[in-house]
Simulated assay, not measured.
Amino acid sequence: MTASVPAAILSAALAAVPAAVLAQGYAGLGAEADGDFAVPQQGAALAFPGDHLPHPDYRIEWWYLTAALSAADGTRYGVQWTLFRSALRPGADTPGLPGDTRQIWMGHAAVTTPDAHLFDERLARGGVGQAGVTEPFEAWIDDWTMRSTAPADADPLDAIALTARGDRFAYDLALEATGPLVLHGDAGFSVKSPAGQASYYYSQPFYDVSGTLTLPEGDVEVTGSGWLDREWSSQPLSGDQEGWDWFSLSFESGAKLMGFGLRESDGGHFTSATWIAPDGTETAYGDGALRLTPGATAEVAGRTIPVEWRVELPDEGLDVTTTPLNPRAWMGTTFSYWEGPIAISGSHDGHGYLEMTGYE
Results as ranks from 00 to 15, higher is better:
Q41K: 15
A131K: 04
E299C: 01
P294C: 05
T334M: 10
T321N: 01
S265V: 11
A277Y: 11
G25W: 10
L213I: 06
L14A: 07
G127N: 11
P278E: 04
G127H: 12
T357M: 07
T334L: 15
D240S: 11
A110R: 07
A116Y: 05
G78K: 04
A15G: 14
M1A: 14
A92S: 10
Y202L: 13
G340N: 12
Y200C: 03
V79P: 09
Y77C: 04
I9P: 00
A47D: 13
T321R: 14
I305C: 00
L257Y: 10
Y201I: 09
A177H: 03
G25S: 09
T134Y: 06
W244H: 07
E231W: 13
T281L: 06
A174H: 04
A15K: 09
R310M: 06
S70A: 14
P54W: 02
A329E: 04
P56L: 03
I276S: 00
T304W: 06
M356H: 05
Y202P: 00
D229I: 09
P156Y: 01
E299I: 08
P294Q: 04
S148M: 08
A195D: 15
S190N: 02
D287A: 09
W338I: 09
Q130E: 12
T2L: 11
G99Y: 14
S345I: 03
L88V: 03
P294E: 13
P341W: 07
T297S: 12
F189R: 03
A12K: 14
S203I: 02
G107W: 00
P90K: 14
A301V: 05
D93M: 14
L175P: 02
A19Q: 13
E61Q: 10
S199C: 06
L257W: 11
Y171P: 03
T94L: 15
S190M: 11
L325S: 12
M356I: 14
I342E: 01
Q80R: 03
L215A: 10
Y201S: 12
D186A: 15
P156I: 01
S234T: 03
F206E: 00
S199D: 08
A44S: 11
Y285V: 07
D219F: 01
D57R: 13
R303C: 02
D51G: 08
G286W: 03
F169N: 02
G286Q: 12
F206R: 01
A12N: 11
A124R: 13
E252A: 14
K192H: 10
G317W: 14
G132L: 00
T333M: 09
Y77F: 15
P205N: 07
E121V: 01
R76Q: 14
G295S: 08
E316Y: 05
L183S: 14
T163F: 03
G254D: 05
V111M: 05
D279N: 07
E32I: 05
G74I: 04
S253C: 06
R168H: 10
